[in-house]
Design a protein around this nucleic acid. Structure first.
Lengths: 205, 205
DNA sequence: TAGATTGTTAATCGATTAACAATC
DNA sequence: TAGATTGTTAATCGATTAACAATC
């Protein structure tokens, strides 16, 4: 859709803009400026204008941006103008937490399945979900066409699980295991490792 | 200690190197090269050498880096050659999850207190912790000297809670609430918002 | 109209990569 | 010694910022 390649670093900022705009919208605000949005997200006004202008002319000189309009555009660009089904692999503590997490609502995601390779956990109930056996996972994901996964298994099991997900056609993996995954470049991976974030801050203490 | 300012983007990569080296060490490996480490973390060998060389000459021509030595150095640089006490604010689902999370062990952090402003939750047991009332939080944190916090309250309560943490002398906040925090520049903030990460990937689907 | 703010260009700044002498 | 790999320099590449004409 966006013919010329958009730098990934810009894509990474769009969800932050989206989140801030959603909050403004929830407060009933109708318009904002690059200046104001920038103050909310800690990014310069010039950069926000440049980022947004990659995708079209969404603002108006003199008045700024319509919040509902920009919200719609950003959702469309990020493809969260729809709901993505998400599979969770790993029914341990983190798996439980993400399965019960209410924060995906209205952000474009809905968890639909949870898998674990521990037969002792298979069949267990987690909220509204029943833990399924990893054995049938590849087929099950293939047949449902799910493209997004969250990986919440121990580090030692993460690479193997990731390979199964790739085999099943998953194209986006949010990895909670503290290990780098090796996947084809057509598959996107994002990492969440709280210790890493904390260590990035202790340097400055 | 490191007189000339090190770019934050380099600091951000050090925990990733540390994590990979720890894994190599756990496997019993004793040496590695910038090439090999780079393959593990998906970063070019040149960049790894450049990053590491900011802090000293830790490698040897011809043989590469001693894993135990480089581990020690990185831990020292990131100040995780010690254990940091961490306070958790918010005893909801995420608070529970981080309190029970075993992944901070051996990464330099130890949760020591959990607070919530809901009197209904105060006194509850979460693992080995008793939920404490936010009312006494500032004094309690001040007196214990804790410098690191994890913020796991709803978005609407996050800014207020962050201000209390700042008041209490906290200098590093890992924020799980999907909102940007406004804090003095002397206080570091890192953000964890899984929806944001997912949205960054759906763009490419 | 006058004031405000966009979209965009050019300038600046910073980060990454390539290359290689030094040396283990 | 010969081969391997570092630390570092210079070149390249990319991202951010400043500035301003266009225009709502």
């Amino acid at each position: 859709m966006y013919a010329d390649k958009i730098p990934d670093i810009i894509i990474g900022r769009l969800p932050v803009y989206l989140r801030a705009l959603q909050r403004m919208s929830d407060k009933g605000l109708k318009t904002t400026s690059s200046q104001e949005l920038g103050e909310h997200v800690g990014i310069s006004a010039a950069q926000i204008r440049k980022d947004i202008s990659q995708f079209g002319e969404f603002g108006k000189q003199g008045t700024g941006y319509s919040i509902p309009f920009l919200l719609d555009k950003l959702k469309e660009i990020l493809k969260v103008d729809r709901i993505w089904d998400v599979v969770v692999v790993g029914a341990g503590d983190i798996g439980h937490a993400v399965a019960n997490y209410q924060g995906f609502k209205n952000r474009g995601f809905r968890i639909t399945m949870i898998f674990d390779n521990d037969k002792g956990k298979v069949g267990n109930q987690i909220g509204e979900f029943t833990v399924e056996d990893t054995e049938g996972m590849v087929e099950r994901i293939k047949s449902t066409g799910v493209k997004v996964a969250m990986l919440t298994v121990p580090a030692a099991a993460a690479q193997t699980a990731a390979e199964k997900l790739v085999q099943a056609g998953v194209k986006a993996i949010l990895n909670y295991a503290p290990i780098n995954l090796n996947v084809p470049s057509s598959v996107k991976v994002q990492y969440i490792d709280p210790s890493t974030h904390l260590q990035r801050m202790t340097f400055y203490l």
